[in-house]
Design a protein around this nucleic acid. Structure first.
Length: 599
RNA sequence: GGGGCGGUAGCUCAGUCGGUUAGAGCAAGGGACUCAUAAUCCCUGGGUCGUGGGUUCAAGCCCCACCCGCCCUACCA
């Protein structure tokens, strides 16, 4: 039994999240975590909303509200969406808690104490009216290379060249049009070159494990070749105060410095809310995990790889004093580096990149209001951007739902329960099984091994495809056995056997599907008189542990999850005529949704 | 500019270490069945594996060049 940390990317709270986000980190991390719990591991699944940084400030200013108000509102929306999807977080919190600020500052102090946080003067753009950092991408002007008027400070979209914002002719702020001021400013830089050897050693070990997706490990090794110190503070009045610079209210920690610390701070917050406030150490300190090992899996979209395979491990190494400059760990002790960075690619939408501003977007909320959560989960699991970009189209969503979920799996459940209800009213006792019966039972039981292995290797598309293949085998068995023809008295034992075998296989398949489709797994189990098989998360309103404002969290008790393997049917369990678990979609859904996009 | 990914049936994709006749689902055509949400099951047709070279007894897979699409590029998060 291992301690498994499921570290799930923190959704940014500048607005509601779209289905591309939950396809990238949400559903895959939940499938993995649910499966790991079923195989007996101690899983700690943490995340929260990321609420600092310039974009939130900009969005708040546009609405005329405070950044805290904007973050509060979006945090609540995101919490509601994620819990409705059934994502089984042990704790989904936020970066604006006092606990998080304290942990982030402790990490900062540790990096500073060990000499990896270096103060340097740099030249940066600020907004003259607010004094805030103006990130490169918020500056636009005329490209000095091609003359294009809408070039951004970091890159010209017209000619594709990378730019420095000081190169731009007639630079202006994209936020309010004013001319940015380039000023000398003091910042703390994380000394990545002093950590590069340690990072390389860690990445080489990880590569040798052979578990990382090839493009993720390659990309990570690649960006290590040209590391430079990176600023970890900003001229901003929204964020976590910089230790030692409390007298400078416009200096804050860089949002990415604190966001990745969320994995640790959320683990600590989770422990502080249990009876053992030190319990988090079992997932983080090498010596504290007990008999098993402590493993950590980080789930995100590919745009986040650099922060999880470079910045975050660099912060951990610096805090632990494991870089070229040496040092000692702080009060949290030596902290485990990521076991695996599990990055997905991007989901596109009818062939185009998601873009809120261009209205190329489908919000999680809108899908959940109109369709079953498990229909979305099924699409993501079966056709998501696991290894390469994949495309969401409404026609494919309708097809997957109707042909695979409803007609393939749902119909098998329904025909099985209907026949048992009509002929026995309860789970019948099986008679002597035939070779065919035994072969099917063996095929299905063996699938636990192959499917589990695939999930453990983050090959979820192959895993769910394997289950659906087995579902097809069971459908074929039913068609070949033709139990509806077994009507004579002397055929009743054979009928009982066929239906018992079928029901057992359905229960098995349902258990295998439960990490993917938790909502419907519970309903299918109920149809066949079984218990809840997929514990669900809940939203709780909690007090800040250190005196801040209260907020909603996602949490849950997932200990009742059944083991990963066959649970024999209980003969005599009453079975009623079923109502369908899955909703078939009308083909007009496609046109309706496409019309909605064009509005 | 640099780095990476992809191009396989009408569509969406799988294809392990180079090894027999390149697979699945959907769509199309035909049939069976009636337990089930008109669901299910069987059969059939369908391929110059982006292009051109190379290595090899053997290439979808390895090497080189090119074409097309996409992603990342470290101060957006």
């Amino acid at each position: 039994m291992s301690k498994i940390l499921s570290a799930v990317a923190w959704p940014y709270a500048n607005g509601p999240r779209h289905i591309g986000h939950v396809a990238g980190f949400g559903v895959p991390s939940d499938v993995f975590s649910r499966y790991m719990r079923m195989t007996g591991h101690d899983v700690l699944m943490v995340s929260g909303t990321d609420e600092h940084g310039t974009p939130i400030l900009v969005a708040a200013d546009e609405e005329g509200v405070s950044p805290r108000e904007l973050a509060d509102r979006n945090n609540r929306l995101i919490v509601e969406d994620l819990v409705a999807l059934g994502l089984s977080y042990d704790l989904f919190t936020r970066t604006t808690t006092r606990n998080h600020a304290a942990v982030a500052q402790e990490l900062f102090r540790g990096c500073l104490r060990n000499g990896y946080m270096v103060e340097e003067t740099t030249r940066g753009a600020i907004s003259p009216s607010t004094g805030r950092t103006l990130p490169d991408r918020y500056i636009e002007g005329t490209c000095p290379i091609c003359g294009y008027d809408g070039a951004r400070g970091d890159q010209c979209d017209n000619c594709g060249n990378q730019l420095d914002p000081t190169d731009l002719i007639e630079p202006r702020s994209r936020i309010n049009g004013e001319t940015p001021e380039f000023v000398e400013t003091q910042h703390y830089f994380l000394d990545l070159p002093a950590l590069a050897d340690a990072l390389k050693q860690w990445l080489d070990e990880r590569e040798a494990s052979g578990t990382w997706r090839p493009n993720v490990i390659r990309f990570s090794q690649n960006i290590l070749a040209e590391v430079r110190p990176r600023a970890m503070t900003r001229d901003l009045d929204w964020g976590i105060p910089v230790p030692g610079w409390e007298d400078q209210p416009t200096k804050r920690l860089y949002v990415w410095f604190d966001a990745v610390i969320g994995y640790l701070s959320a683990s600590i917050e989770w422990a502080r809310r249990t009876e053992d406030p030190e319990a988090w150490r079992q997932w983080w300190n090498p010596a504290a995990s007990g008999e098993g090992e402590a493993l950590s899996y980080y789930f995100m979209g590919k745009d986040n790889i650099t922060f999880h395979s470079q910045i975050w491990p660099a912060e951990l190494l610096a805090y632990d004093g494991r870089g070229d400059k040496g040092g000692e760990p702080g009060e949290y002790g030596s902290l485990n580096l990521p076991t695996e960075v599990v990055s997905s690619e991007f989901l596109t939408m009818e062939g185009k990149k998601f873009s809120s501003s261009k209205r190329v977007v489908i919000y999680v909320r809108d899908v959940l209001e109109r369709y079953q959560a498990d229909a979305l989960r099924y699409f993501i699991c079966a056709a998501g951007p696991e290894n390469q970009d994949s495309d969401f189209t409404w026609s494919e969503f309708v097809r997957r739902t109707n042909d695979e979920l409803v007609a393939g799996w749902g119909n098998l459940v329904n025909r099985t329960a209907s026949m048992i209800a009509a002929r026995f009213g309860e789970i019948p006792q099986a008679g002597v099984p035939t070779e065919t019966d035994l072969a099917l039972l063996a095929t299905v039981e063996q699938a636990f091994g192959t499917v589990g292995d695939l999930i453990g290797r983050h090959r979820q598309k192959a895993a769910i495809a394997e289950i659906m293949h087995v579902v097809g085998e069971v459908n074929r068995y039913v068609s070949e056995q033709e139990p509806w023809k077994l009507k004579a008295d002397d055929e009743r034992e054979r009928l009982a056997t066929v239906l018992h075998v079928t029901a057992q296989c359905v229960v098995d398949c349902n258990l295998m599907l439960s990490p993917f489709l938790p909502h419907s797994a519970n309903r299918v189990s109920a149809v066949l008189g079984g218990p809840e098989v997929a514990p669900m998360p809940v939203v709780e309103e909690v007090e800040d542990l250190d005196g801040g404002p209260s907020y909603p969290v996602i949490t849950g008790d997932y200990r009742s999850a059944p083991g990963w393997g066959r649970t024999p049917l209980v003969v005599g369990t009453p079975i009623a005529k079923p109502t369908p678990v899955f909703t078939k979609l009308d083909v007009t859904v496609v046109d309706d949704e496409l019309a909605r996009l064009d509005q």
